[in-house]
Amino acid sequence: MERLQEIWLQSLFGFMALTTVVCSIAVVVTQNVVRAAVWLLFALSGTAGLFFLLGADFVGATQLLIYVGGTMILVIFGVMLTARGPFVSMKTQSGEWTLAALVGVALFGIVAAVVWSTKWPTMDWGDTSKIRGENSPTTVQLGLEFLGIPPQESPKDAAGTPLARLGRDPANIGYLLPFEIVSVHLLVVLIGAAYLARAKRRKAATS
């Protein structure tokens, strides 16, 4: 019974991971930039599905709302505004392709070697809602984290030592400062982008 449940969840994971991988490879392979944007949309949705399966429901919904519903719209607007026939499909020479493929394979080899050889301190949080000792969803935990109140308790292993560096560790003071910095950063970006993209007279096409 447990085995069947595991198989079901594993096949869901496999489906999402396969979608993400196939669509990422399709982004590389396609020559048409609009199609690349569509494949990226599916890759990002696959990533959001993986987030939901990994128990990060708030992050998954934020990914859908902001990446898929915001950044992808920006990218596709950029594609549309600069798409004038010849720029939709620009081909790269085969020499560049081989070089890029070699670099890609080498990079993947390095990363895979690091992943397989490192001894990760794994533990499965499982139901992440039990972090504060009572039933608190990830939204509450993230909210408190951003207010500067990191969770006080951490799960303990068999010997009774806390597994995570949380709460009691004086180095962990939450993410209030980065949160405020990011809000100012977004304001600056908003003003900067609006200034950069203001309507100007378009220079006549040269050659």
């Binding site: 990060a56 990446y67 794994t122 533990m123 949080w125 935990q141 993230l142 993410y175």
Partner: peptide, 21 residues
């Protein structure tokens, strides 16, 4: 999810969504 990093990982991921946007 899988290391003692805990909820901090999701906080980082949220920053990693907002800043690239």
């Amino acid at each position: 999810r899988y290391t003692p990093f805990g909820i901090d990982g999701q906080a980082f991921a949220l920053f990693g969504i907002v800043l690239p946007a």
